[in-house]
Design a binder for these strands. Structure first.
Lengths: 305, 305
DNA sequence: TACGTCTATAGGCAAAACCTATCGCGATTA
DNA sequence: TAATCGCGATAGGTTTTGCCTATAGACGTA
């Protein structure tokens, strides 16, 4: 029993005439007769009472048509659903991101994505970069917004943006008061050798970046406080407890009460590479591709605004 | 999109392994890969995320499987339903019969039929022989229990039984009182020349039969009363208003209060030919065949009991 | 590094769905 | 009453397609 046969039978039932039905089905009439005979033989049941001048449904035929129509309808629904998914009118992706980026970057991305693809549900999964790598490698997220370097070998990635890293100091800090903070030539890392650093806890990529930058400048940072929360860090800086480094997109907007002063660093300006990571060898869904595209677009607007 | 492809996809989803799925489907693994690729290409959607060591469903795949499973289930239901009808576990027939036969004969047939084929619904349609012929010719009944001769040229028929026609007289009638009523040699039609006849109204086959028998015996019957109802006729006879002819299976049982006396007629015993009539060229359903078979069996038991 | 296991691809064969031509039947028309 | 028309069924040949075996290519494991 084939779908084609159901459709043929339904058409005959609708037309009550083999030749006309065959025409509508774009096949020759003998083919239709053949297929119907075959179907009836397989079912062991006569669907149509027919002679040369009349075609009408048997009891079995009526029961058959009811169910056959339902099946054909469901097939159409299936087709439509797949078409919707294929055309990105429907879908679902799970995106991983670090809490910092999640709260600062994605609020710009998600509305744009929702506007372009209103039918695609996005589930956000926030965790530390370390955990995210594992979750992404296990397929718990489709894609994750992370920063290099990645430790999981089963992850592939694709660059999204280079995000400059700025210095955050208390408002009354000597560097904040020194001439015009927007003047060319930023702060040199060497100038920070004796400053008290406030720093992220283990497991977050930015901690290592900060320490590495200090070492490249020739000293070990003097760490006076640690927190797992970037927001806390900035509040502590604003309160005068020390200084830290902050990725530019994560820098607090003016909405906040306690605001540190952000100063660019001197050439070579350090930056972190933001990437979209995904499981190696896994072809990303169209929805994921679309999300990445939107992400890129949004980052471009943010960077050049 | 073919049913086979849905089944293949469902099997892969269940096994999460192409080779094993192919084995369960009794096809070679490459055929399975081919069919799935073809399906995915047609849908424009990837159903499985797969590499050499892992097969897992995509979002689209999960949605697909839900609907595909429903469709396969409905196909199974359709198959079962047709199988039921084919095996006479289910069905429906509309049987036509004259009211007289309907009330006297079919009460014996229907219970037997119900016992043999409990799933087949029988709809009974009672009307005059004249109307029944028309209804049967128009397909309003599948088969009809009628007596010869038939007037509709588009009807075919098949004999069921020869039903002897008896004489019905009042209990105190001279013929009823004459010697042993069960003795060999019945009443001769000639003896009834001057008897008052009670007779069925126009449109019922038995009226013509009675008149013809009288004419063959050389006289016109003297008609004193007409009714469209055979039961009324017999009551009138029992009440002494006249005599009539009654098909043997229609003769009243002893249950009734007013009972005529039934006497056999002399050789050649007149009889009416009961037949099952159906539309010419129309192949009867299995249910109809089964009904005819049950009818024959029941008639045999009645005749020889 | 070699091997076993997995899915994908290539090429050939056989089943089956389709086609055209034609039959045979019944209804309609000349 | 014969001729014609329209219908579904049948016959025979062609094309499509689903299946097969053989093998490639990628990955994980010993």
């Amino acid at each position: 029993m084939e779908l084609r046969q159901l459709q043929y039978a339904l058409m005959i039932a609708a037309e009550r005439n083999f030749s006309r039905a065959a025409e509508k089905l774009h096949i020759a009439q003998p083919s239709l007769s053949q297929q119907l005979s075959k179907l009836e033989k397989e079912l062991g049941v006569l669907l149509f009472q027919r002679n040369t001048s009349n075609v009408e449904l048997t009891h079995a035929g009526r029961e058959f048509m009811k169910r056959a129509q339902r099946i054909i309808d469901e097939m159409d629904l299936l087709r439509v659903e797949m078409e919707d998914i294929s055309q990105l009118r429907k879908g679902r992706i799970t995106v991983g991101s670090m809490p910092i980026t999640g709260s600062h970057l994605l609020p710009h991305v998600l509305p744009a994505f929702r506007a372009d693809y209103p039918g695609i549900d996005v589930t956000l999964l926030e965790d530390t970069s370390h955990n995210l790598e594992r979750l992404t490698a296990n397929g718990k997220t489709d894609i994750s917004l992370l920063s290099l370097p990645l430790n999981e070998p089963t992850l592939d990635y694709e660059p999204i943006a280079d995000e400059p890293i700025d210095l955050a100091v208390p408002p009354n800090h000597r560097l904040a008061l020194r001439s015009d903070p927007n003047a060319p030539g930023g702060v040199d890392m060497q100038e920070l050798e004796n400053e008290p650093f406030i720093i992220l806890k283990q497991g977050q990529g930015l901690r290592k970046t900060l320490i590495d930058l200090c070492r490249q400048a020739g000293y070990e940072p003097q760490i006076v406080f640690e927190s797992s929360n970037m927001e806390t860090l900035q509040s502590l800086v604003a309160a005068g407890m020390g200084i830290t480094l902050v990725p530019r997109f994560v820098a607090r907007s003016k909405r906040s009460e306690l605001l540190p002063v952000y100063l660019p660093l001197a050439d070579p300006v350090p930056y972190r590479k933001l990437v979209i990571a995904y499981r190696k060898g896994r072809s990303r869904s169209k929805a994921a591709e679309a999300f990445i595209e939107t992400l890129r677009g949004t980052m471009n607007r943010l960077t050049h605004a």
